[in-house]
Amino acid sequence: MNKKPTVGIFKFTGCAGCQLELLHLEDVFLDLLKIIDITYWVMVKRENIEGPWDISFIEGGISTPQEIEEIKQIRKKSKIMVAFGDCAIAGCIPSIRNWIPQMESENKVYTDTSVIHSTKVMGIGEYVKVDAVLKGCPPHRDTFLEFIKASLLQIRPRLRQHPVCVECKYRDNECLITSKKIPCMGPVTSAGCGALCPSLGRECEGCFGPMSNPNAAALADIFKEIGLHQEDIERKFRKYAGMTIEFRKEAGQ
C-alpha cells in the first residue's frame, strides 16, 4: 500500500460535536491510525504539523473575516477538502442568526458590540472549493470511516442521499406523520442516522440536511395541513439547513 495519507482536522464556527463523534470511534481508532496519519488535530494532539494534508476535514461554518483567511490557507495546503458536518456544509444551527439583522443578534449577546466583527454564517463552500461533504449534526462516525476507506481504495464513498423515511421503513417504524400527525422532517432529510429519532417516537429534526431532490414545498403543505403555523414551518426548515438552496424558500427566503 502507498504511504499513509496525511489528515488534518480543523474547527471553525461550530460546537466541536463533529470532532467528538470521531473520538467515539474508540473501538477502531487504533486500527484507523494504522491506515491514516492525523498530523493536525488540535483537540486531540499536543504537536500539530501545519500541512500539507492529503485530506482535511473541516468542522464548523465561517463567521469572521479571520476564518475566511484561515480556511483559504488550509485549502491551499489540502489535496482533498471535506465539509465535515452541517456547519461546514451550510452553516447549520449557528446560521439561524442570518435570518435577523446582524445588529440585532449582536445586541442579544454582547453589551459592547464594538469589538465584534462577525459576518453572516456560511458553509465553507462559500469561500473555498469543497471536494466532499459528510452530512449530519454530527455526521455518523461510520460515514467518516466509509469516506476514509473509499479514499484509500480511490473510489466514491457510498454515502446515502435518500430520506430518513427509507431507514425508518427498514426499521419497520410506523410513519409519525400519517399515524400521529407529528411534523416530522424525515421525508426531506438525508438519511445516515439510522432513523434514530423516529425509532424512539420523536420526529426527525432534519439534522442531516436536505436529501437529494427533496420536495420541501410539499412537506411544508403537509405541515400546514396538520396545523402548523407559517412561522413554525419556517423555523423547522431554518434550523439545520436554512441556508441551503433546497430549503431556503420554505425557510422564508
Binding site: H162, C165, V166, G186, P187, N213, P214, N215, A218, D221
Partner: peptide, 26 residues
C-alpha cells in the same frame, strides 16, 4: 405532491428492487 420518500415502495409487499454493494472492514 409526491415527496419521493420511497415509503410506498418499501412497504409494498410486491416491490422487490434492491441495491447490491460491497463493504470492507478497516
Amino acid at each position: 405532491a409526491c415527496l419521493s420518500c420511497g415509503s410506498c415502495s418499501l412497504v409494498c409487499p410486491t416491490c422487490y428492487c434492491y441495491d447490491v454493494y460491497d463493504t470492507v472492514d478497516i
